[in-house]
Computed example of a mutant assay.
Amino acid sequence: MQTNPRPSNSKLVIDIQFASPAIESTIEKTASNVLIRKWIKSTTNKEGLLTLRFVNAAEGKKLNFAFRKKDYATNVLTFPYEHSKGYVVADIIFCLPVIQKEAKAQGKTLKAHLAHLIIHGCLHAHGFDHEVEKDAKKMEALEIALLKKLGFANPYLSL
């Protein structure tokens, strides 16, 4: 994971990475980098560095085990390194096969589910969490509002 110092320019730097050309192709067919950046920017007005990495199940499982001691791939892992009033630095890992399976099982488009999880991961990078019911309700309400502004339905209705 990254521990990059603050970028010298004063803006939000967004680094989008793909573990393979196949993953990159699938994501690009679903949402362009420009659209993904729009989704990310909808969550923040802070400066900093957000790195999004799209991975396969093997890398997702390895990271989930290494950092959470869970022996399976999960949809999104967020590693917040710094978040303050005006600054954020985080790595956010997305496991494409898990996201695809979830979208299908929940009757959602891959695009809608991906938008939701990108917003979800970015909110984690900003210190939001859902371990306690009160915090979960606050985070979910913010996700719903942000997704609505972007033209997506409430992602919790179909669960």
Rank of each mutant, 00 (worst) to 15 (best):
T51G: 04
N9V: 15
N64Q: 12
A112W: 02
Q100I: 09
F79W: 03
A73N: 01
D91P: 03
N75P: 07
F18E: 04
S10R: 14
K138S: 09
A31D: 06
A103P: 06
F152C: 00
D129C: 07
R37G: 04
A153N: 14
I144D: 00
M1Y: 08
N75T: 15
P80Q: 15
V89W: 15
H113I: 11
I36T: 03
F67S: 08
P97C: 02
G127W: 05
K38W: 07
A58L: 11
P5C: 09
T44P: 02
K70A: 13
P7H: 13
E28I: 15
K41H: 07
K134Y: 15
L147P: 00
L117M: 01
L147V: 00
T43F: 02
Y156E: 05
A22Y: 14
K108G: 02
K70I: 12
Y72W: 13
D129M: 06
N154Q: 03
Y72E: 15
V98Q: 01
K149Q: 13
S158A: 11
Q2A: 09
A112L: 04
K108Q: 03
I23N: 08
R53T: 14
D135W: 10
I118E: 02
E133T: 05
S32A: 10
P21S: 11
N4M: 12
N45D: 14
L50A: 12
L12R: 08
G151E: 02
L142D: 05
W39V: 00
N154C: 07
F128Q: 08
F65L: 08
H124R: 03
D129L: 10
D129W: 07
A90G: 04
W39G: 01
K85I: 15
K62P: 07
E24T: 12
L157C: 06
A66G: 10
K70S: 13
R68M: 12
A105T: 11
K62E: 14
N45Q: 12
A31C: 11
K11T: 10
A66H: 14
K111H: 07
W39F: 08
S20M: 08
T51V: 14
R37C: 13
M1K: 09
F94A: 00
F67R: 12
S158R: 09
N45L: 15
A103E: 00
V76Y: 03
I16A: 06
K85H: 14
S158D: 15
A136I: 04
L12K: 01
P80I: 02
L12P: 02
K46F: 08
F128I: 10
F152P: 00
